[in-house]
Simulated scan of single mutants.
Amino acid sequence: MRKIFFSWVAMALLSFNVSAADADKEATIRAALSSLNSQVPIVAVADAAFPGLYEVTLASGEKLYVNDSGSHFIVGEVFRVETDGQLVNLTEEGKKASRVDQLAALKRDDMIVYPAKGETKAHLTVFTDTDCFYCRKLHGEIEDITARGIEVRYLAFPRAGAGSKTQKVMDAIWCADEADQVSLMNKAKAGQTIPMISCADSPVMDEYQLGQQMGVTGTPALVLEDGTMVPGYMPAAQLAGMLGVK
């Protein structure tokens, strides 16, 4: 699907003709890409972090780097070389800010929240699957994590997608009374059977789609407060260090 999508982008850009040298750059780029497919809207066009190109953010969360006429583009990640030789992923830095905004727009009621014990020093958002081994391993340390002052906010990401057994289990958790959700999550993570219920306003598949937009490809996917995404399991002590919690 990705290959087909970018083939469409290429055809759209190559066929777009810009005759006015002083045309508005953003309008030119938007027109070139919008001729591709109205189902893939452009979210933003901005100057790239280096001269000569513009950064285009798509609704899917993907980024393109386009020249000022929209006739050429680059797909991939852009890095800056620091004076000490270290590499900074500029594409990822841009995604971090978007993730913070996307998570801030969510309702707390649509998360399964494990509050910090005592003072809340940091929070961690986790896209999780109730069946995956490393999700369960991370959940096995939930007491240690919250005891360090870290609030854990679970979002649903049933890896097998819509209609899967995991999606139905996660629907049952998210559709339950708020007072029962943590207990049901604990049981599901332990491999126990829980009562299967569903509801029309379950946020499970919306959160799954959000995860895909944010770049989640597997579970658990940990999103730190600054929008950094950490794929996979991480021990509680290491997580606390990344969050600056002592």
Rank of each mutant, 00 (worst) to 15 (best):
S202C: 01
K189L: 05
A160N: 10
A221P: 14
K3Y: 13
F73R: 08
H123P: 00
T28S: 13
S38Y: 02
K25C: 02
A188G: 14
I4V: 15
I145G: 15
A32T: 09
Q167K: 05
A44V: 00
D110R: 08
A116H: 09
L90F: 10
G94T: 01
T120N: 08
K121L: 11
I112P: 06
S98P: 00
A48L: 03
D131Y: 01
D109L: 07
V100G: 01
E143L: 03
G76A: 05
Q181R: 15
I150R: 02
G85S: 08
I142S: 15
L13E: 03
A188R: 12
A32W: 06
S202R: 02
G85V: 06
D226R: 10
E207K: 15
C135T: 07
V45M: 07
Q86S: 15
D84H: 08
G76K: 04
T91M: 04
D177W: 00
A188I: 10
T57C: 06
L36D: 05
A105D: 11
M170S: 08
R30A: 10
W174Q: 04
T28H: 10
K95S: 12
T83H: 05
G241N: 11
Q181A: 14
K137Y: 01
V43E: 15
R148D: 11
S71N: 09
T219K: 09
I4W: 11
S202T: 09
T83S: 14
M11C: 13
A147L: 06
L243K: 14
T166S: 14
R136T: 03
F50E: 12
D24Q: 04
S202E: 00
R80P: 05
F157S: 00
G218A: 15
V152N: 04
Q212M: 11
D101I: 00
D206Q: 15
E178F: 12
G161T: 13
V9R: 11
I197T: 14
T120A: 11
H123T: 11
R30P: 05
P51D: 12
V152L: 02
K107H: 12
F79W: 09
S183W: 01
D131R: 07
V18M: 08
L90D: 15
Q102R: 13
K168R: 08
A200C: 00
I173Y: 07
D109K: 14
C135V: 06
Q209P: 04
L90R: 12
E207C: 02
V9H: 12
P158D: 11
I150M: 02
V182M: 10
N67G: 10
K25T: 14
L138P: 08
G76F: 01
D84R: 11
V56F: 01
I150W: 06
W174P: 07
N186Q: 15
L224K: 08
D47M: 03
E225D: 10
M234Y: 02
N67W: 02
V78F: 01
V43Y: 03
L33G: 04
V152E: 09
V216H: 06
L138N: 10
A46V: 13
E77H: 14
F5M: 15
L58F: 01
Q181V: 10
R159V: 12
D22I: 00
V100E: 09
T146W: 13
A188N: 14
A105G: 03
E141S: 13
